[in-house]
Design a protein around this nucleic acid. Sequence first.
DNA 1: CGGTATCCCGGCCGATACTG
DNA 2: CAGTATCGGCCGGGATACCG
Lengths: 133, 133
Amino acid sequence: MTITQVDAEDHALPFNVFAKACPSRGTLEHITGRWGGLTLGALYEGSLRFNELRRRVDGVSEKMLSQTLHALERDGLVHREAQPTNPPRVDYELTPLGREVAERLLGLIHHLESRMDDVLAAREAYDGMRGGV
Amino acid sequence: MTITQVDAEDHALPFNVFAKACPSRGTLEHITGRWGGLTLGALYEGSLRFNELRRRVDGVSEKMLSQTLHALERDGLVHREAQPTNPPRVDYELTPLGREVAERLLGLIHHLESRMDDVLAAREAYDGMRGGV
DNA sequence: CGGTATCCCGGCCGATACTG
DNA sequence: CAGTATCGGCCGGGATACCG
């Protein structure tokens, strides 16, 4: 009874993120996941090495950064450039597609940050209601 | 006007989502979390009742939808309107701020879906490299 | 430096039952 | 209809150790 089959021949607009089995949902979760968005945002400024990225994205562990980068690379959003030098040097940078996505993501983030005072005020109002004055 | 002028001596922006202790990070995670974005997206079309929302956001459980709505309401992105009728009727709708956020989020989603074929191609290429010798 | 492998805990999340 | 309460599995993700 699943209506989630995506026909490979019909390319019109076969993707619907609201359907749970749609592949776009998975990719959206890579992008908007806990570390995905911050990683894309950090790389928007330019190419970065692994540990630079790790310092830039405050709080991410080696494992999660590695995992996140693999997912983004697989989705074609990030390009990994390894140089066979010693010590090794690996640079990560956005692909054109990654850049488009990061741009929109950063727009969202900046917009949110510019209105955080409203969010904070709403939180206080909400908590005040429940706390019962 | 803008909050970017808080303290000239301090850093430019008061909120920095890249810092792990910044409140904007928490709100961003509500928005981009597993259900937050889809919920905002669904409400963008118009006001919806609890179970309408549940059907629209494929796969969400009662508990998670309830939790998500509370978080979004607390952040001032969603307005909850309860009518004391019997049976009860509760409508959820976006606040102006929620609408601004949802707009950008939907822009991102739409853009992503329009380029999913590239993502899928990148995935095949990536998987081919690793598995196909 | 740039990772991978392993262990393990907290909490996310789904399922179920119950309430108003 | 619109939720809350509770339980339990599973897995996200941190810590650590180890490799090229």
